[in-house]
Amino acid sequence: MEKKLDVKTTNKCKPRSILSPDLSTVKISRRGFLKGNAALAGALLLWDALGEPAKGLAREINGWPDRYGMLTDLTRCFGCRICEKACNKANDLEPPATPFEDKSVFEEKRRVNAHTNETYTVVNRYADPKTGEPVYRKVQCNHCAEPACASACPVSALKKSPDGPVLYNENLCIGCRYCMTACPFYVPAFEYFDAGSPAIRKCSMCYTRRISKGEVPACASECPVEAITFGKRSELIKLAREKIVRNPDKYIDHIYGENEFGGTDWLYISGIAFEEMDFPSDTGTTPLPEFTREFLSAVPLVLVMWPALFGGVYLFSKNRSRTAEAGTENTKKEGNQS
């Protein structure tokens, strides 16, 4: 009986999993077209790099099905803040102003804050609108499949790793903070009170400190109720869907992050609607970098066409004024003769 249910589940997923490769092929061909344009322009202009459309960030991502992800089961979280403590320890962050055991922090909504640099993840408390019971949301970088922050960074200090995590390189960062403006989740934090080397602070999924050493990210490893699962994203989606199907009364039928903003590698399942916990709801499924891509692809066209267009206007107006001058001189001569 259970096995049948499983089969049914996978069948149910199939339309979705078939749909996404389809979409990606469409994307590739369009991008290939744009890239062709850019290459043409590049042949004509030395600094075409300026306007070259995004180098198929998404295309590469779609080719990384084995990337890691995290799944947070918000129905399990009971607000112990051990993940915050584990994050602090794993990343060698500053000692906290109030101890991680202190529950009074739930009185306000917190975010990752580089002023104090205590942790790259925070847990906030909300109330279940039906029962009034407390529910908790863990906040950290969602490691988007096509991160707006990485596409925004003018020096590529933020990059999507093929393994999944969105990584920050402090050695390149100029401190423009466009990543903060770009991030739809208000995740990156900036060290405003550092004059010498202010940096962006955000979760790296413990990539260099743990994942690359074969360890599970600190928050997932320390969580006492296994609310956080680390694994391949594709596996996590299966796991999440299975949980939802098995417990339709416990979970709402929504995996947040599966398609939001084109997908994030940190996924969530919940017992109450995500907007009740301040998750952005009007997200759409288009990856945010798509919104600037069209503009960037128009850049080489302007660079190529404007000189001819305005050079032409210049020659036209010059020629016209010469003709006009010649005309007046002729009239003058005629006038003198008569």
């Binding site: 070259e52 960074c153 003018p154 020096v155 590529s156 390149l172 960062c173 423009c176 080397s197 503009f295």
Partner: peptide, 24 residues
């Protein structure tokens, strides 16, 4: 305004974020 103003030339000389409108 830049956090590290001495890195102003970075987008021109050190690291190119070609997908960024700010790079342009």
């Amino acid at each position: 305004d830049l956090g590290r103003p001495w890195r102003l030339p970075y987008p021109m000389a050190v690291s190119f974020g070609t997908t960024s409108v700010l790079f342009l």
